[in-house]
Design a protein around this nucleic acid. Sequence first.
DNA 1: CTTGACTTACGAATGTCTTCGTAATATACT
DNA 2: AGTATATTACGAAGACATTCGTAAGTCAAG
Lengths: 127, 127
Amino acid sequence: MKELPKPSEGELRILQVLWNRGPSTVRDVFERLGQTTGVGYTTILKLLQIMHEKGLVARDESARSHIYSARLSREEEQERSVENLLQTVFNGSKKQLVLQILADEKVSKKELTEIQSLISELVADSR
Amino acid sequence: MKELPKPSEGELRILQVLWNRGPSTVRDVFERLGQTTGVGYTTILKLLQIMHEKGLVARDESARSHIYSARLSREEEQERSVENLLQTVFNGSKKQLVLQILADEKVSKKELTEIQSLISELVADSR
DNA sequence: CTTGACTTACGAATGTCTTCGTAATATACT
DNA sequence: AGTATATTACGAAGACATTCGTAAGTCAAG
């Protein structure tokens, strides 16, 4: 019933907006993206149409301005892309990947301890 | 002097081989990839030539069979791609990203505790 | 009802990626 | 040397992504 295609880079930018804002019109997305990326209104329209064909978004046509919503959930895309990253660049090593994320001056001690307690819960669960 | 372009999907597959094997000929890469991906010899040759033009790999032409080696290091690509993933799919939340990596039955308790001690070191360092 | 503003639909141009066939070149073997 | 084999170089086709101009349709206000 499913197996949605991997979104392209441009499609991902749009999905991001839909994930953050919820269901949106072309204009909504344009106002969020067009200004920052310099891309035109019809470009975003076209992309959304293509994404609709692919099944990446749903379209509500009952109003004059169609309303698009993500059919690929952020969680699904997170799973897919993490798995992909792991295999293509980290040789499957989750430890290396976590290390890369956290080995960065910009990670505050607060964040670190938060993540520590998060892992503690995971350890507790996994028995 | 630098700023190498983002490697494409096919280029990444090849870089992976170079990272794992070290400097390699087209045939070396082909034997690693061709069988599993079904792609032809000249395809890999062409890709490597393009990557050379882009500066992603270095080429030693002293022998008959040229020897290619990665100029984009695995570490650089790891940084780049993690940052990208973080921004495009995780809204910049490292915590969410780490959670996604570890919230998986297939992560053993051993791995978890390894990562725990890893974080402990980081916390200790960051004062 | 007509005009103006907004929206969708369509088609095309452009660029990049991937793939491979074929030709040219170098090496090795007899 | 002459032939077979492996390698590189070149060019082009096909797929997909991105972009936008223009046409066609819809709605509201005068």
